[in-house]
Nucleic acid binder design. Structure first.
Length: 572
RNA sequence: GCGGAUAUGGUGAAGUGGUAUCACCUGAGGUUUCCAACCUCAUGUCGUGGGUUCAAUUCCCGCUAUCCGCACCA
């Protein structure tokens, strides 16, 4: 496999050149020297990206219980504190007092400490001064207190000094969690349901590498699927029995082993711990094939327990093989109720819950102490509300009067005449609970990169070592049809333009005209950017209204009447 | 972040202390009856800031970016 990668190295260089040359992908801000980790999509890449995103959204929306939402990228600090992004994502950095160089605190201590990664900021500072760690750059020893090295871009909301601290979101998921009440209402409380969001995410990587693979600003597409953990849903997993997935399970019981099996078996045999995760895995696999990823180059890898993010309980990555090796492109995680509960706790609301009907109604007979407000009110004044609440929690059968307790730091006594012992009947039909969340999170840029890599084919033609075909799938490709007049004279060019106008009337089709240079070159130009079909207008067209339709991948041509062509295109 | 290498039209490359060459691509014209043909012409380049110098794309230093290791990240 290593040999294969080396052989492909030049090929992948030629792909990068092509991407730049033809306007798919290029480093951003090149006029100003460029910025690592930031990329532009060009005239063709922009449309490619749009097509991938549309396909992604439709794939999920068509399930019927998924909606699309959108939320801001600028996120106030408390949100990210609640979600755990501030804290868990952090490493500490120390600044040299003398030369202002900044280093990761734990890295400075590597020589003198076994596991500096585990230290908190105070211990880090202590160790640094105890061992008189010198600055690698100026060799003096003296460090300012370590600060969290945050991988998020920070900003301030509001221009004045009192502005609120905020960050560019590191994932789109939080937007879906915060919109949960609205989504819950939309579906009128019927779980399971989900929401998707496509947008930019930001991570201030220390050193982005590997081209499009690690970006500082990237396109993410995330789906949050809210489920009742107690309800067993039948996903009909055996309807995918014709597909064998490559799985690399958590090596918790031994060495890493890749195995092949159907999604049904993987869930049955508990290789995949969560059925819903399994369902999303196979749905995601389907989507990848539709987008043009080579199915042989896809595998799922389960996160090892210590590798799992702070929120997840089970997590599988969809990895795609390309010139950078196996790259994680989708993460499918069961996040449990972590996020919703965290936000409920911090924001002090009760709104992030769902209602579950009991199978059988529960009749509950209770004997309670009902406070007599006309006595308690005047007697305890401001404290009366707290006292009433307390009384309602007591078991009336056990209580003896006068009853003493401490409320709000004060000893109080309840006399018998302050309460009324009542028998109440209540019927409980269900309960509130916090839904669990299964999240498939897609790195769109990484997927696009691999679509391009897997589509990129070089064949040899006479006099041509590298004839390039970008075998993009229909409707993913930026341009769907090209119309070429054999020559731009004798009215062929006008005929071609007439045909283009009729094609443009068909919705959603992007058609392109090219009339310069030889016909062979124009086919080559089209093949190179993945135009699936070329329509050629020749002299015969003027006589009998027929054109030739050339297929990109087979390079075969068929002559057909313009009417039939338009019919073909409208069904394309 | 550390170590090494690199930066020349859109792409891929050559070259020089006196402002740069080639191929492909692109555009115009000609030619051409279906797969990167040919002819003529044309457009377009020394990453960036500073230093040395009469003169720097070339030499030196800083910065930025890219590639390869290591580390980090997922």
């Amino acid at each position: 496999m290593l040999k294969l990668m080396n052989a492909d190295e030049n090929k992948s260089k030629r792909l990068v050149s092509l991407m730049k040359k033809r306007g798919f992908i290029q480093p951003a801000f090149e006029l100003y020297g460029g910025v690592a980790g930031l990329y532009d999509y060009g005239p063709l890449g922009g449309r490619l990206r749009r097509n991938v995103i549309s396909k992604w959204i439709n794939h999920w929306i068509s399930l019927g219980n998924i909606v699309e939402i959108d939320s801001p990228t600028i996120t106030p600090e408390p949100v990210l504190k609640a979600s755990g992004h501030i804290g868990a994502f952090n490493d500490y950095a120390s600044e040299c007092k003398f030369c202002s160089s900044i280093y990761r605190s734990d890295h400075l201590l590597e020589e003198v400490h076994n596991n500096p990664d585990s230290l908190d900021n105070l211990s880090l500072d202590e160790e640094l001064s105890k061992h008189k760690i010198p600055c690698p750059s100026c060799k003096k020893s003296g460090w300012l207190p370590s600060e969290p090295l945050n991988l998020m871009f920070s900003t301030t909301i509001g221009a004045s000094k009192g502005g609120r601290r905020a960050y560019m979101r590191p994932e789109t998921a939080q937007g879906m969690f915060l919109q949960y009440p609205s989504i819950y209402r939309h579906f009128r409380g019927k779980l399971p349901f989900g929401a998707v969001q496509v947008g930019k995410g930001y991570r201030n990587e220390i050193s982005p590498r590997q081209g499009m693979i690690r970006l500082r600003e990237f396109n993410m597409a995330e789906l949050e699927y809210f489920i009742d953990p107690q309800k067993d849903i039948d996903y009909n997993l055996n309807s995918w029995d014709h597909i064998e997935l490559k799985l690399v399970p958590d090596p918790i019981n031994g060495e890493i082993k890749e195995l092949k099996c159907t999604i049904y078996d993987a869930v049955e045999n508990k290789i995949i711990r969560d059925k819903t995760v399994g369902w999303f895995m196979i749905k995601t696999f389907e989507l990848m094939i539709e987008l043009g990823i080579n199915s042989d180059l896809i595998r799922f890898r389960q996160h090892e327990t210590d590798e799992m993010a702070h929120y997840a309980t089970d997590c599988w990555d969809l990895e795609i093989f390309g010139s950078y090796g196996w790259i994680e492109c989708v993460g499918i995680a069961n996040r449990g109720c972590y996020d919703l509960e965290a936000h409920q706790k911090v924001s002090k609301t009760n709104d992030l819950k769902a209602w579950r009907d009991y199978e059988n109604e529960l009749e509950i007979d209770k004997i309670i102490c009902s406070p007599v407000q006309s006595i308690i009110g005047p007697h305890f004044k401001g404290k009366s509300k707290l006292i009433s609440n307390h009384l309602e929690t007591l078991d009336a059968l056990e209580i003896k009067f006068p009853y003493s307790t401490t409320i709000d730091g004060e000893e109080i006594t309840i006399e018998e005449n302050m309460v009324e012992i009542k028998e109440v009947k209540s019927i409980e039909r269900g309960e509130w609970f916090t839904p669990h969340v299964v999240e498939p999170a897609f790195g769109i840029d990484r997927i696009i990169w691999h679509i391009l890599e897997h589509s990129y084919t070089e064949i040899s033609k006479e006099n041509d070592d590298y004839y390039t075909i970008l075998a993009l799938k229909n409707k993913i490709c930026p341009i769907d049809f090209s119309v070429y007049p054999l020559f731009e004279k004798d009215g062929l060019d006008e005929m071609a333009k007439k045909i283009i106008f009729s094609i443009r009337d068909i919705k959603g089709i992007n058609v392109n005209y090219d009339g310069t240079k030889s016909i062979g070159r124009r086919y080559a130009r089209g093949d190179e950017i993945g135009v699936p079909y070329a329509i050629t207008v020749d002299h015969q067209t003027l006589e009998d209204n027929t054109v030739t339709l050339r297929e990109r991948d087979s390079q075969e041509q068929k002559r057909m009447h313009i009417e039939d062509l338009l019919k073909f295109i409208s069904q394309y």
